[in-house]
Computed example of a mutant assay.
Amino acid sequence: MDDISLAAVALLCLAALSAGWIDAVVGGGGLLQLPALLVGFPHLPPAYLLGTNKAVSIVGTTAAAVTYTRKAPVDVRTAVRIGLAALGGSLLGAFFAAGVESAVLRPLIIVILLGVLAFVLLRPSFGTTVPVMTGPVTRRRVLTAILVAGLGIGFYDGLVGPGTGTFLVIALVAILHMDLVTASATTKIVNVCTNFGALVVFTAQGTVLWKLAALMALFNLAGGTLGARTALKRGSGFVRVVLVAVVLALVAKLAYDQWTG
């Protein structure tokens, strides 16, 4: 921490601000924040970067979740149930992560993301209009969301990570017929659960740069609050545009890592 330049600190704070905004709108803020930490500390063990990233992210995610729940129709009980399942899934994924070859996994994720992108582009109404429901969401759909969006995507989060928030938004829209704003709001509550679990582990291991995390967290907090307010104000159509942009960025990032790694 003492060796980092003022310019690098400014870059990290800007990345935290931008990541908080993107993450609050549609997920994927780690695309900016984690690479920025890698640039700022190229020789630091990855565990410290991951721990610091989680310490920063949980602040912006919590701020976004609070902002959303005050103004968006969020089923907090369902969100927490999915979040607890995601927490279990992420711990399980992390257990298997050491034995997975990233060179094999990245192409598969790229293909999945391209499929998601094609689906969203070919269905202009996806997430911007909500199907007419004859009653409350069925228990079967809630259970499916807990298993797929919670346990399944949580497992992916622990195994690999990039785009977890984006995948959660898409899954919640598809399974529970949420609009994109409500899905983003629900995702933030799920993210709070998973981030908390991961942060407990990193804290116990002593792999968090707390001074840097505290500074970046202030900017991430501002970005998360602003992002949630922007999404609430601009609506699902705006969130859809950001969703497409984030998926494209994820594909580009993973492709770059695959071909240059």
Rank of each mutant, 00 (worst) to 15 (best):
V148Y: 04
F96M: 11
G20Q: 02
L232T: 07
V241T: 13
A183H: 02
A36N: 05
R141D: 14
R139C: 07
V160D: 01
V200T: 12
G152F: 00
D3H: 13
V74R: 07
P46S: 11
T144W: 07
L50V: 09
Y156G: 00
K71V: 04
G28R: 12
P73I: 05
L34N: 00
G89D: 05
P162L: 00
R229K: 14
V104L: 14
V169T: 06
L105Y: 12
I110N: 06
A118C: 12
Q205E: 14
N220M: 02
G27P: 04
R106K: 13
G150A: 08
V132H: 13
G99I: 05
G20Y: 03
A252I: 11
L37S: 03
S57Q: 06
D3Y: 03
Y48E: 04
F96W: 13
L172W: 00
V116S: 11
L226D: 03
V59I: 15
L117H: 05
L49H: 00
D23Q: 13
L121R: 11
F238N: 04
L92Y: 02
V246M: 13
A94E: 11
T182F: 05
A171K: 00
L114T: 05
G99N: 07
A174S: 13
R229D: 09
D257Q: 15
G237M: 02
L121P: 06
M1E: 08
A231C: 12
V148H: 04
G224A: 07
D23E: 15
L37M: 15
A185K: 00
V242I: 15
T260W: 14
P45Q: 05
L87I: 02
L212W: 01
H43D: 15
T187R: 07
L168A: 06
A174K: 07
F41H: 01
I112K: 06
V239E: 05
F95K: 13
K253S: 14
A103C: 07
M178I: 05
P136H: 13
K71S: 15
G28K: 12
N220E: 08
L44S: 08
I109Y: 12
T164I: 02
V251N: 10
T144Q: 13
T52K: 04
V160Y: 15
R106I: 10
A55N: 01
R240C: 05
T69Y: 10
P162T: 04
L180A: 06
L117Q: 08
L14H: 09
Q258T: 14
A64D: 02
K253P: 00
G237T: 09
I82N: 00
W259G: 10
A72M: 09
T260K: 14
L44R: 06
L254E: 08
A118V: 11
F155Y: 10
L105A: 11
P46E: 12
G127Y: 01
V66C: 07
F196M: 10
V190T: 03
P131W: 10
G83T: 04
S90C: 11
P42E: 11
A15R: 03
G150S: 06
L14R: 06
S57I: 04
